[in-house]
Structure formats: structure tokens, C-alpha cells
Write a protein that binds this DNA or RNA. Structure first.
Lengths: 212, 212
DNA sequence: CACTTATCGACCACTGTGGTCAATGAAAGG
DNA sequence: CCTTTCATTGACCACAGTGGTCGATAAGTG
């Protein structure tokens, strides 16, 4: 798909990808600056346009590469068979953090495309891929849930929504904290321990006491 | 403080304020464009620099005006005496929505100043005012909570955190939905009804059954 | 009438944009 | 060894957008 770029030194690829993901995810397509990207990636201007012919193609390649990466390094690692929702979500979070470690801004990049109104920069094919990827990915997490574990005084769907909101709120707190520091160097164990406590609380609150 | 601006037609003031809040909150100080502001506010370039001498002063005035507005139209309306946390949070949300109706991007503007790294554009006085405003405002909501209403099998603080995360997640869902549509014209009653159901669920889940 | 105040947008110097390309170094092949 | 191919650079370009100015008016006031 882009032989030249894919044939260069892996570390350099990563530097360019991460710089570009960060720039596009924070600025959106139009305001993203190729100059800032090359500065952050520490390559010359000529090289960027040698690897990717222009801004548009760079963007398209980023989407393709990103989708493929998450496909193999996130969604496919989620255990569809696991039916305990909280456990499954926990495992998914761990995998997500693993992926974030390598491509810190990838999730933000793909998530913000629609937010920035950059859909029109996507080829019909890429758009289809993204939709597909999103749906099958989500279904991997949200399907095959054993709702009989839930407390019974509330409708299943509402329990599930509450759980999702709680975890979402927690994730948001964490990422906001992490934004401040160089979290690739932070000892994550502390945070995982806190996370464990949090999930136990969730169990106590949202599961049927018999099933804890 | 800025007599010229404050003496003009109220509707025009609002148009300018909203346009500026939107621009600064989404772009940050440096990237915010006065050209886009005047276009959105439908005034001429000359007028903007007639009311506010330059970009910097415009920004400072926005902060001052915003803080004052939220002081009288948000924080002071919160009933400090209310000790039922869920009820209080509900009332605060209603007041917030009321305020959002008039200045849609004000909360975002003030909230994002630090995020965008625009603290240096603030005078020491404004900085102090903001800190003060934040702290007393927050304490108005989070102080004087009757934690004896909470379920007793979890530490109070953890129950409270869970509640906050749930409501935060819910608010986020809503604002993301609202971003898509012109929500100043939406019938909000539907959403308030849903919100009521949601809060009842929270009660059931996080309060001691005796106290529901 | 004069004098002040409100309003406009063409204009300015300047910065940053995406993209090009002639020049050079490095590697490979015969 | 020379030639050809590939990798790499950054000065350079036309252009778009920037914050800010200012002389020309129009509107109001006394």
C-alpha cells in the first residue's frame, strides 16, 4: 500500500506515525500542520512528502494503518467467550492500555475523525472499513453478556448502561491525569490496583449478591 | 470595566460573547481567530477592536464577564442547605442547563483555559478569581452532604466517587448528543424525564434502601 | 451648523501553509 | 572505477490567513 514508508526503519515509522496521530487528533485535518509533524518526528520536510505524496494521502494512510493495527492489537485480543461483563471490560482495558503504549494518540485520532468533521477526507472504502471495524469491535465487547449476574431490581439494559457510565467516567479521570505526565514512564501497577478496587465496588453495587 | 462594550445593545453583546467563547474554547488563545469571531458575531472588524482594544484584552474581558456571569447565574443559585447529594446534583444540572442556554460555550471556555495552556494570558487577579470561584463553587456542591443516606457496605467516599462518575458519564453522553443538533430548539422535557429515571436508578443503587 | 461617537472594510506587514526541487550523499552493480 | 539508483536535505515558492490600523463616512447631539 505504501512500500516506501513501510520499508524504512521501524523506529522511524513509529516516530512519524505518533507525531502525525497526535497532530491530526488534536487539530483536525485542515489545521493540522505538516511542519509541526516533521519537527516532532525529527525528519526533513522532503522526506514526509517522499513517503506520502501529500497531506491527503498521509491522512488516508494513517487511517488504514491505524485500523489495521487496532484490529490485530486490540479487538482480536478480546475474549468473546467471556460473559462476565465487568471482567471482560477489565481485560479490554488492559489490552487497550497495551495498545496505547505503542500508539498513544491512535484511539483519539480515529475517535475524533467524525468530531472534527473530517469524514470527507476518507475514501468510501476507508469509511466502510471504519464503520465495520467499529461495529464488530463493539459487538465483541457488548455481545454475549450474562445479564443473569446483574441485580434484578432494575432492567438489565439500565444496569448495563450504569456500569458503562461508571467505567467511562473512571477511564476519563485516568486519561485526564495521564495527560499531565509522561505516563509511558509511570509505574502503572498502582493504577491497576486502584482499578481492581473500583471494579470490586462495581460488582458489589451492580451484581446480584449471590454472584459476587 | 469596559463601558463602551457594556453600553451597546444587549443582543449584540450576546452575539459577540457567544462567538468569542466558542472560538476561544475550541481553538485556545493563540489559534483563535478574530476574523472568525467577527464573522460569526456579524460585526465588522473595526468594531471588535473598538470595543476591545486588542485580542489580549478581549480574552481578559471574556474571563471577567464569564466568571461574574456564572457567579450570579450558577453558583449562587445552588442550594447549599440541600444535603441529599443526588437531589442537589440534579438541581445543579438544571441550573447549569439554564446557564448553558444563554452562554453555550462559557463552561467550556473557562474549563479549557488550563487545558489549552492559556493561563499566562490571565492577569494575576483573574487567575486568583478563577481559583477562588472554582473552589467555593465546588464546595457549594460537594460540602454538607448527608452521607448517612448512602449504602453502608462501601466507604462513603467511594460511594460518592461512583455517583459522580455515573452522573459525569451521563452528562457526557448528553452533551455529545447535543453537539450534533441545534439543542436550543430541542424539547428538553424528554431528556429531563430520562434523567429522572436515571437518578432514581442511582438512588436504588447507591442509597441505603431505608432512605429511598 | 459643528462636534462627538459609531461603523465600516480595504489595507498592511507578517507568519505560517502545503508542496517543490536542485543539490548532495550513500549504496549498489557492473 | 564509474554510473545509476535511491535516500535525504532545506531553501524556496505562491498563497492564505493573521492581528491590527485608519481614513472615510454615517448617525446622533447640542
Amino acid at each position: 500500500m505504501n512500500e516506501i514508508f513501510k520499508s524504512i526503519e521501524e523506529a522511524k515509522q513509529q516516530r512519524i506515525l505518533n507525531a502525525a496521530y497526535e497532530e491530526f487528533s488534536s487539530q483536525g485535518y485542515t489545521k493540522a500542520s505538516t511542519n509541526r509533524i516533521i519537527k516532532k518526528a525529527e525528519i526533513s520536510k522532503g522526506m514526509l512528502f517522499y513517503y506520502f505524496n501529500n497531506k491527503q494521502e498521509l491522512f488516508e494512510d494513517l487511517v488504514d494503518i491505524g485500523i489495521e493495527y487496532l484490529q490485530t492489537n486490540f479487538f482480536e485480543l478480546i475474549d468473546e467467550a467471556e460473559s462476565d461483563f465487568i471482567k471482560k471490560y477489565y481485560l479490554a482495558s488492559r489490552i487497550k492500555l497495551q495498545a496505547l503504549h505503542q500508539h498513544r494518540y491512535l484511539f483519539e485520532f480515529l475517535g475524533n475523525i467524525y468530531l472534527h468533521g473530517d469524514e470527507d477526507k476518507l475514501s468510501a472504502e476507508a469509511m466502510h472499513k471504519m464503520k465495520d471495524w467499529r461495529e464488530t469491535g463493539m459487538s465483541r465487547i457488548y455481545n454475549n453478556i450474562d445479564t443473569s449476574l446483574f441485580r434484578t431490581d432494575l432492567p438489565k439494559e439500565r444496569v448495563m448502561k450504569l456500569i458503562i457510565r461508571c467505567i467511562g467516567g473512571y477511564e476519563r479521570e485516568l486519561t485526564e491525569q495521564f495527560k499531565m505526565m509522561d505516563w509511558t514512564k509511570v509505574d502503572l501497577q498502582v493504577y491497576w490496583d486502584e482499578f481492581d478496587v473500583f471494579l470490586e465496588d462495581l460488582r458489589k453495587v451492580f451484581y446480584n449478591p449471590q454472584n459476587i
